[in-house]
């Protein structure tokens, strides 16, 4: 009834409001603005409604890029998550080995994306790169600049090299938080190594794995720098993922309208997938095997 209101509280909310407005809402609204208009210069612009969206969604090159992107992201997840878990399980639990492996694992994470691209670009070259030279020496005709498959695989290996450590560190943290008594209890029961993994370690790692999968999904779905540095999206369109496509459209061709429309679609795809994944996993965790 006579609720005391103190309007001064609004001043405390203002900083957050400004930060969110400047960092998220205003840029997003600018993109929305571009996506529904055809803009030539500030004075000459036409409202086009959903025309850009229709054009973008019907673009077969974009469909190709999307499929390539989905396939790439799934490959990344299917390699990095199990590999990360496996490596985390084999890491030492105490002694000097812990800090040594932590440092070793953290190294790739510290390297900037474009440097990773450059490293592998040189490493994979058949003439001056150690990796490329050795592979060719083994009789495999490997050339990422000409063979689409080689380029695609190189980008994948690059990502696995760069980011598996993240999954390892997350899983390791999850494993370390399991009290020793769980392992003892399993030992007393006579549970097998597999049962220990399936019924103790995996459920206990669930929450960190969700975060790991989400981070790797978002990051790999937005991959740009590595293929850009390696081959610029080529050869052909082999490594032209959604970000390459978008950049080409927006910066290369200056098609701001379609690019804006596409950005929004891109954004929604990521948001939707993350939301669905998170909800499904969290509900599964709650209901378990009921």
């Amino acid at each position: 009834m006579n609720k005391i209101t103190n309007n001064k509280a609004w001043f405390l909310v203002l900083p957050v409001f400004f930060i969110v407005a400047i960092s998220a809402i205003i840029p997003l609204m600018t993109v929305v603005n571009y996506s529904v208009q055809d803009i030539f210069d500030p004075q000459t612009r036409f409202f086009v409604g959903t025309e850009w969206f229709e054009q973008v969604l019907g673009d077969s090159r974009l469909h190709d890029a999307l499929l390539r992107q989905i396939f790439y992201t799934l490959s990344v997840l299917f390699i990095e998550i199990p590999l990360g878990i496996a490596v985390a399980l084999t890491l030492p639990r105490k002694g000097w080995g812990v800090s040594a492996s932590m440092v070793l694992l953290a190294l790739p994470l510290l390297i900037p994306w474009n440097v990773v691209g450059t490293i592998w670009q040189i490493f994979g070259r058949a003439d001056i790169g150690l990796g490329g030279y050795v592979i060719n020496l083994m009789g495999i005709d490997y050339n990422y600049a000409q063979n689409p498959m080689d380029a695609w695989l190189t980008v994948l290996v690059m990502d696995v090299w760069h980011w598996t450590s993240l999954i390892v560190l997350l899983c390791y943290a999850g494993l370390r938080s399991i009290p020793d008594a769980y392992y003892q209890a399993a030992k007393i029961d006579g549970a097998s190594r597999w049962a220990v993994f399936r019924f103790i370690q995996l459920p206990k790692m669930q929450s960190v794995l969700v975060i790991g999968v989400l981070l790797r999904f978002m990051d790999s779905f937005m991959i740009y720098t590595e293929p850009f540095v390696l081959t610029g999206g080529g050869p052909g369109n082999a490594t032209t993922f959604l970000s390459q496509f978008l950049t080409r459209m927006a910066v290369g061709q200056f098609d701001l309208g379609p690019a804006a429309a596409f950005s929004l679609v891109y954004f929604l795809i990521i948001l939707l997938v993350c939301w669905v994944f998170y909800t499904v996993v969290m509900n599964a965790g709650k209901q378990g095997e009921q």
């Binding site: 008594a181 003892q184 209890a185 029961d189 019924f199």
Partner: peptide, 25 residues
Amino acid sequence: AMVYQQFINYPSMNVFDNIASPLKL
């Protein structure tokens, strides 16, 4: 058999399966 200070149960199994686990093994 041992019971600990912490509550140690298999997190992804329900109570029935938890109690049944030593018998199953």
